[in-house]
Amino acid sequence: MIWKDTGWGTILFLAALTQIDQGLYEAARVDGASRWRQLWHVTVPGIRGLIILLLILRLGDSLTVGFEQIILQQNLVGRPASEVLDTYVYNNGVLAGQWGVSAAVGLVKGLFGVALVLGANKVAHLFGEAGVYKK
C-alpha cells in the first residue's frame, strides 16, 4: 500500500512545495535561519494544509486493508486467522448467501469511515485549516 501511494503523494507534495513563496526562504536566510529552521518555519507551514487533507483522506480508507492480497492467500493461512471485514463480507455474503449480515457489516464499516473523516475534519477546523470542506 505504501509503494502504491508514494507516487501520488510525491506529486501532491511537489506541487505544494512549488506554491511556497521563494521570498519567504530568502527572508529566512537574511534573518540567519539555518536549513532546518527554514524547513520548520517556512516549508512545514506551507504544506500543512496538504498534510492535514491527506491525513483526513487516509483515515477514511484506514479500514481497508488490501482485500485482494488477503483473499488470495486465505486458503494457505486459514480463514479464521486471516478474516478481516472485507473478507468477512465476501465470504458470508457472496459465497454463503447471508446478504443481510454482510450488508450490515459493510454499512457499519462505511459509517465508521465517514465518522473518522468528519471527526478528523472537525479537528482540522480547530487547527484553522479548511480540511475536506470549509465551514
Rank of each mutant, 00 (worst) to 15 (best):
L107T: 15
A115C: 14
G32P: 05
T10V: 05
R48N: 03
A104K: 03
G119L: 00
G23N: 15
L76Y: 11
V84D: 02
D21I: 00
L111E: 08
G78M: 10
G23V: 01
A28P: 05
D21S: 00
K122G: 08
L50N: 14
K109S: 11
S102M: 12
G97S: 05
T64R: 03
P80F: 06
L126E: 06
F13M: 14
A124Y: 10
V101K: 13
G66T: 15
I20Q: 02
T43C: 12
S102C: 02
R37K: 14
Y133N: 05
Q38P: 08
W99T: 11
R37Y: 08
F13K: 02
A16M: 12
A124S: 04
V132Q: 06
S102F: 09
L107F: 02
D86Y: 03
Q38L: 00
L126C: 08
I70C: 06
A130S: 10
Y88R: 05
A15I: 15
D5H: 09
G93K: 07
R58E: 15
I47Q: 05
Q69M: 04
R48K: 10
L118W: 13
Q22V: 05
R48Q: 12
I70A: 00
L57I: 15
A27K: 03
N75P: 12
L12C: 13
Y90S: 09
Y88E: 06
A104D: 13
V117F: 05
L57A: 11
Q73G: 10
N75Q: 12
L76G: 03
G128T: 03
L85G: 10
W3K: 01
V84R: 08
G49I: 03
N92D: 07
L53F: 11
G110Y: 13
E129I: 01
V123H: 02
W40N: 08
K109Q: 11
Y25T: 14
A16D: 06
G93Y: 15
Y133S: 07
T10A: 00
A96V: 04
E68N: 11
E68P: 10
L17E: 12
K135W: 01
M1G: 01
V101Y: 14
I70R: 04
V84H: 14
V77M: 01
T18R: 12
V94W: 15
R29N: 10
N91W: 01
S102R: 13
F127Y: 15
P45A: 01
D31H: 12
I47D: 11
G93I: 07
L54S: 02
I52P: 12
L14M: 13
L118Y: 13
I71M: 09
D61R: 07
P45M: 04
G9F: 04
I11E: 01
L53T: 07
G110H: 09
V105L: 11
E26P: 10
G78Q: 01
K4E: 05
L116F: 13
R29A: 11
A16I: 10
I47G: 01
D61A: 06
V123E: 09
R48C: 10
V44Q: 07
L12V: 00
T87H: 06
